[in-house]
Design a protein around this nucleic acid. Structure first.
Ligand code: SF4
Ligand code: SF4
Lengths: 159, 159
DNA sequence: TAGAACTCGGACAGAAAATATCCGAGATCA
DNA sequence: TGATCTCGGATATTTTCTGTCCGAGTTCTA
């Protein structure tokens, strides 16, 4: 089980965007995070498709959040980058081999698939209860209340 | 986030092995599940390395569980196949870029990594509470109490 | 006791996915 | 009107996963 690496950058980008009301270009976010600029742009495009960020073209364009950070859950961001399909995909191997069950008795997923789905649901629930605003607040608290202000300052000053 | 496909085969194999006290060769399990024999063998080797199954060489050899099925959790099987490293791996990008934090302030993982770890812990807990014996019992109940007996019969008769 | 047959085990290619990158379409401002 | 800056999807490269193969070791048989 491996989670795409771009998820981390997307979460950081959302936290950063919550500190600026004006659009921020992808290149600026890449410089701040020290990531490949073109690849980060790809992740932001995925966020745009999911309706989490809005893109503005032109000279003063860039990306900005479409909703208040308190209304964006971490689960939404992860799903936007990594996809919505579940990690455990049933191949229905119980319908193959010498003891294959008839398709009529395979209407509901079997016990193994149910247990896996329940575990993923617990994971999704834990992630859905955390918002981007929560993350920004906690990161700020960890740094003694200076980190988020510094980010906002850097975004506006270094044009 | 994608879970290795062999996890499904490994879980099925463990459930099947719980129905037979004598060792079962990998080729037999592959025939029963309709999977590539050589690749299933690879997964069983991983289970062997993790101490979940024991391998017996020779003419009547094969794989058998090392413990009662009630003492093997689904989490152990998943970890044996998919690895133990967490799905979300922190790259510590807060230590890069123009606003890099000094390493001394990065002793504990940041809020984003903590939230991700908590979600994965919820997933692991849900999976750790299910044993292979539970899975076998539920599959048997779904089929009206005939499936596990049929598997045990097939394993012994078709030699 | 020697032989044969069957088993597992790790080393070897092929395919799929993720990573990283590029240049064109479109919009904004001077 | 023109130039400049932005996003967007189409394009290579690398890594991971999937699938396969043959040799080492063990057990049973004659
Ligand atoms: S539904 Fe259950 S029995 Fe069927 S393939 Fe999936 S895990 Fe196996
Ligand atoms: S998620 Fe947190 S710990 Fe990981 S790189 Fe970002 S700031 Fe650092």
């Amino acid at each position: 089980m491996k989670l795409s690496n771009g998820v981390e950058w997307a979460l950081h980008s959302c936290v950063t965007l919550s500190q600026s009301r004006e659009p921020v270009p992808a290149a600026r976010l890449a410089e701040l995070h020290g990531t490949p600029p073109a690849y980060l742009a790809k992740q932001l495009q995925a966020l745009s498709r999911a309706g989490i960020v809005r893109s503005t073209a032109g000279q003063v364009g860039g990306y900005s959040l479409t909703r208040p950070a308190a209304e964006i859950s971490a689960l939404e961001v992860v799903r936007a980058i990594d996809g919505t399909e579940p990690a455990y995909r049933c191949t229905e191997i119980r319908q193959r081999g010498p003891l294959a069950l008839p398709a009529e008795r395979c209407e509901r997923p079997c016990a193994i698939a149910r247990a896996m789905a329940a575990a993923e649901e617990a994971w999704a629930r834990a992630l859905g209860e955390v918002t981007v605003a929560d993350l920004a607040e906690r990161i700020d608290a960890d740094s003694g209340g200076t980190a988020m202000a510094a980010v906002g300052r850097w975004l506006t000053t270094t044009r």
